[in-house]
Design a protein around this nucleic acid. Sequence first.
DNA 1: TATATTATTTGACTTAAGTCAAATACAGCC
DNA 2: GGCTGTATTTGACTTAAGTCAAATAATATA
Lengths: 192, 192
Amino acid sequence: MNPDLVLYDSRIQQYVATLDIAALEALESITETKTYPKGSLMLKAGQICRNSFELVSGIARKYHLHNGAEITNEIYFEHDLALSFGSYALQRPSEEYIEALTDVTARVIHYDSFQKAKEEHPMLRQLDLMLLEYYGIWVEDRMNQMRRYSATERYKQLLEHTPHIIKSVPLTYIASYLGISLETLSRIRSRR
Amino acid sequence: MNPDLVLYDSRIQQYVATLDIAALEALESITETKTYPKGSLMLKAGQICRNSFELVSGIARKYHLHNGAEITNEIYFEHDLALSFGSYALQRPSEEYIEALTDVTARVIHYDSFQKAKEEHPMLRQLDLMLLEYYGIWVEDRMNQMRRYSATERYKQLLEHTPHIIKSVPLTYIASYLGISLETLSRIRSRR
DNA sequence: TATATTATTTGACTTAAGTCAAATACAGCC
DNA sequence: GGCTGTATTTGACTTAAGTCAAATAATATA
């Protein structure tokens, strides 16, 4: 993975470790652990993304529709934070869906609760800011991948950096995540 | 432009209008107005991006090198905030350059000063967060443009949404910004 | 103004990746 | 184990966009 992301991830972990008890308890008090059966939608297009989902177990994906086809935007595993960024930030209707690809257990925090908690615990503001920066770096990195590399290179990098994706997610989703057609992906895989 | 971005931009303006005098003065006190002659580099790859540049006048672009070629990542006009996101957020060496395409005047704020000002003025934290979210939405939107639309469509949308770019920026930069070759851009322009 | 330099266009050809259709392969279920 | 539906692969063909080379056009400069 992008070394900047790895670095920043560890900085976030470090920061979380320094949170005071009150802030941690506040977080805990607004967190609900929920489960979503395989195939269910954790967020639908048209809805406002009012929750953040921290995956405890299972796999999920975020996608949107384009000319009738589902285009996968992101694939989530354990510990990942799933939400529709634009919809969450602006509290406006989402264009994206979030779907449980397996049974999913997630720690769910409501937008309003988190906003309130931030007011009471300034440390959580800093955490919010760090998560935001992390996502910004992630999207930038992903855009660079898409712009700079060919379909084959993108697939190889996915293999190198996140091989578990290939093992656990249907190829259709991976293809659209990589921005290539299913057939092309199949051909890339068959070569060598 | 993306309606979400327009909306969020106005929210930021509104928020700025509510800043208390102390916060505004703090901002003012850490802001230096500087000028950069046409062709000069406001940031070089390898350097850490320690400043944010709010353009007062002129045009600038951010780019990186890929296989020896310059790839334009962003083009800045009056009022735009220029910085290398990843480098600024992590205070790590940048892969990007920021170049003044014309003589540029900018309000420059040093990273450290802003961090300090944020500690003293919590309102600035909120501003920082809003700017971050704005950038996140912008990058997401740009990535969607690149993924969903053909070269021709991307050019047309640029024409519709930001026609001033075409009038004031050499086509080479626009081509790489759109992720297409100069020749293809020229052909797209000549059709109709 | 003539000349050099840089920017843009045009032409000819190549190529990566897409599309549509059909064939296998695989998985869940009776 | 056989059957049904979904997932993946393979084949044949098309197409958007890239590349390389050369020709104009525009701009800056002596």
